[in-house]
Design a binder for these strands. Structure first.
Lengths: 227, 227
DNA sequence: ACCTGAACACCGTTCAAGT
DNA sequence: ACCTGAACACCGTTCAAGT
């Protein structure tokens, strides 16, 4: 016990010129939720094939992986918080864009998808995440508000919102996959593939994403939920 | 060198009553592609939260994880082969079901989705896999053939097939996520959510899956790919 | 309360070697 | 050629302890 006191006093006196609290990290920037999330975003931006891991993040912050458990219960929570931080950089209000409800909705979804495309590692996590941060809630709310503005019934709106956000994540997650060369197939054995072969990889990513949302919205608006 | 010969002869004579080849595993069933995939399917069926891993699979087969690299270049290939094996249990021909092209297409996609729901761990892998086995090719071909039968232009058909299969995987992968309790939100701050709140979790999984494909197909058929 | 080190129980993959 | 063991370079998480 007295040994503990002695060590503590030594510690304090050695760093007395810096503000010393119980959570001082000896000159290193303090470990806060914000600092952790900022580092996580930086790691994601460095990106490449290497994913953002808890251990790599801890290394970046000059600490051990266990320290982060004081702020996040598990990696999923950390990923959710990181997504919400990234969403803070997007204007998520329903009225943020020009045009009618349909154009606004497409632009909002494209903005969200582009964000996920920039962080394919995160897109994979979001797939199984069910995020619930304030910015994600704002995104969900805006999608619903725009469907409502388009006169879409609440049931179709609710189920459709799910579809739209799911599709955004799925497209970005798939982009994280490495390209596999398309096998040549015989037209006789696969007539459907032969029929579509000229268009299977046509268009730019941007064109395909916009078309996907156009088609989804059209289908959501036109398809009632009662059998 | 002579020590090696000595050991080999000892080995052979000790098991001479069993068929001895260079690939004998001393009474254990021989390691083949088929045996590995069968064991993989069995592991998936045991399922639960524990995923199918290379090491667990090797353990099941009474060998080390490195042995499987004689048959598969990496885990992605193993997952792809496993998916293709599972698809062998589904009738994937375009004419396999009753009704018009639309009903047949929905039933085919529902069958595929139900398969993925049964193996949520696999669904996550498929997300970033771009499978290319013969049965998956058959699925792709049938989706395209049915869209063609519906008079959908080839461009919309090609892009739409992508959307449909992506959505199937996304719905199944999301189901692998643990449930997060929906936070109560203020109607004033989130009017869109308040509007849809009664329907956000309504319906059975089956109803939602069918509606998703109905809506997607309607949108795909109605939305041209030229701007 | 905040932060840590050591340890636990895993992963996929490579490589040199064994039969 | 087919199969293996040991090793490499990682993971997320728990726990008891330190200040």
């Amino acid at each position: 016990m007295s040994a503990n006191v002695f060590v503590t006093i030594m510690f304090v006196s050695a760093w007395s010129d810096a503000p010393v609290t119980s959570r001082d990290r000896m000159g290193k920037p303090p470990l806060t939720r914000e600092a952790i999330i900022t580092a996580a975003v930086r790691l994601l931006q460095a990106g490449g094939p290497e994913r953002m891991t808890l251990r790599r993040l801890a290394q970046e912050l000059d600490t051990g992986p266990t320290s982060l458990y004081a702020f996040f219960g598990n990696v999923a929570e950390l990923h959710a918080a990181t997504l919400d931080q990234l969403l803070a950089g997007v204007d998520l209000r329903p009225a943020a864009r020009a045009g009618g409800w349909r154009a606004r909705l497409v632009e909002l979804l494209v903005a969200y998808t582009e964000l996920l495309f920039a962080y394919p590692g995160l897109a994979r996590s979001v797939m199984t995440l069910r995020p619930s941060g304030p910015n994600y809630m704002r995104l969900v709310d805006s999608v619903l508000a725009l469907l409502r503005a388009g006169g879409v019934p609440a049931g179709q709106g609710a189920w459709g919102m799910n579809l739209l956000l799911q599709q955004a994540t799925a497209m970005a997650a798939e982009a994280a996959a490495e390209e596999v060369p398309w096998r040549e197939v015989s037209a006789a054995e696969y007539p459907g593939i032969a029929w579509a072969s000229g268009q299977l990889f046509s268009g730019t990513r941007h064109q395909r994403v916009r078309w996907a949302f156009d088609a989804l919205i059209a289908g959501i608006a036109a398809t009632g939920i009662t059998p």
